[in-house]
Amino acid sequence: TVKMVREQINNQLKITKPQGIPAMKEQLIEAANYSLEGDGKRIRPILTWVMGVNEYGLDASAIVPLLRSLEYMHTASLIFDDLPSQDNASTRRGRQTLHQVHNSATAELTGLYLIQKAIGEQSSLDQFNAETVLALIQYSAQKAEDMCMGQAMDLDSKGKALTLDQLNMVCFYKTGVAFEACLVMPAMLAQVKESEIAALKKFAYHLGIAFQIKDDLLDVEGDMLLLGKPVGQDSDNNNSNFVSILGLEGASKEMWEHYCLAME
């Protein structure tokens, strides 16, 4: 399923260039497509597809705009995350980061462009109730605000020794809310009960933290060629993370703890 859906999503992501558009708009679209074409896992829209189609029986073609919007938002967040003013990464998804290929200004504008494209995609979910789509867009905007706060908290924590509770909070806002959105948005379209959405949020909380711990472990133990991004970034940037606080074994145990809580 993952392989099939990933292929479908990859085929739907490219932004087309209409005839007769200004040259600068063309350059923005090319920059956005460069970032989208990288070898991403597409785990967020895949989760949305599985929830929407397999669990709630939504029409696969009807939720394509939602899948695109999630990957556009995620890719925009990576573009900003990689900037010299933030994590200063040189590679992402197995290729040079956007600001390395162009410059920081182009990367910033491309990130903003992708966020607007994401909102446009969500507003085109025309096979669903308009009130539901409006609520979904409002929810999406709130999650984007939370992600910005999470990244700001992460940047502010550089050089500081965070407690485990503080790290969990940063990690949830930076990573967990995106997973929450991937599960909750198809549930909103399916108009499920509030109690089910609350359960999805709890699952996403633990899933997001487990995912981030694995990311921290791979930053120490991972292979750059397999990861498609540099290793040792957290140490270079003087970031507190689960490994620096708990050690390798402790972080691994904490990851499985959150995995088990998510499954429960």
Rank of each mutant, 00 (worst) to 15 (best):
T106V: 14
T106H: 02
T106W: 08
T106G: 11
A107D: 04
A107C: 11
A107V: 10
A107R: 01
E108G: 14
E108D: 15
E108S: 15
E108I: 13
E108L: 13
E108C: 13
E108P: 08
L109Y: 15
L109S: 09
L109T: 04
L109F: 13
L109P: 08
L109K: 12
T110Y: 07
T110F: 12
T110W: 01
T110D: 00
T110H: 05
G111Q: 02
G111A: 13
G111Y: 04
G111C: 01
G111L: 06
G111H: 00
G111P: 03
G111V: 10
G111N: 07
G111I: 07
G111F: 01
G111W: 00
L112G: 08
L112V: 13
L112Q: 02
L112W: 12
Y113R: 03
Y113D: 14
Y113F: 15
Y113G: 05
Y113L: 07
Y113P: 01
Y113K: 06
L114Q: 00
L114V: 01
I115T: 09
I115W: 03
Q116F: 11
Q116E: 15
Q116P: 07
Q116V: 08
Q116L: 15
K117A: 07
K117F: 12
K117D: 11
K117V: 03
K117H: 09
K117E: 15
A118M: 04
A118E: 01
A118I: 09
A118H: 02
A118V: 08
A118Y: 00
A118C: 11
A118T: 09
I119M: 14
I119R: 05
I119K: 00
I119S: 05
I119P: 01
I119A: 08
G120D: 08
G120Q: 07
E121H: 00
E121R: 00
E121V: 00
E121G: 00
E121N: 01
E121K: 01
E121T: 09
Q122T: 04
Q122P: 00
Q122I: 12
S123Y: 13
S123A: 12
S123F: 06
S123P: 04
S123Q: 10
S123T: 12
S124Q: 14
S124N: 09
S124V: 06
S124C: 03
S124L: 08
S124M: 10
L125K: 00
L125N: 08
L125M: 11
L125Q: 13
L125G: 04
D126M: 10
D126H: 04
D126P: 10
Q127W: 14
Q127T: 14
Q127D: 13
F128S: 05
F128H: 14
F128A: 06
A130C: 06
A130I: 10
A130M: 12
A130D: 05
A130G: 11
A130F: 11
E131R: 05
E131D: 14
E131N: 11
E131M: 07
E131W: 10
E131Q: 12
E131L: 06
E131A: 02
E131C: 12
E131T: 09
T132H: 06
T132A: 07
T132L: 09
T132P: 04
T132Y: 08
T132D: 06
V133F: 05
V133E: 02
V133A: 05
V133K: 03
V133T: 08
L134N: 15
L134H: 15
L134E: 15
L134A: 14
L134M: 15
A135Y: 03
A135N: 07
A135P: 02
A135Q: 12
A135K: 04
A135E: 07
A135W: 10
A135T: 14
L136H: 00
L136N: 03
L136E: 09
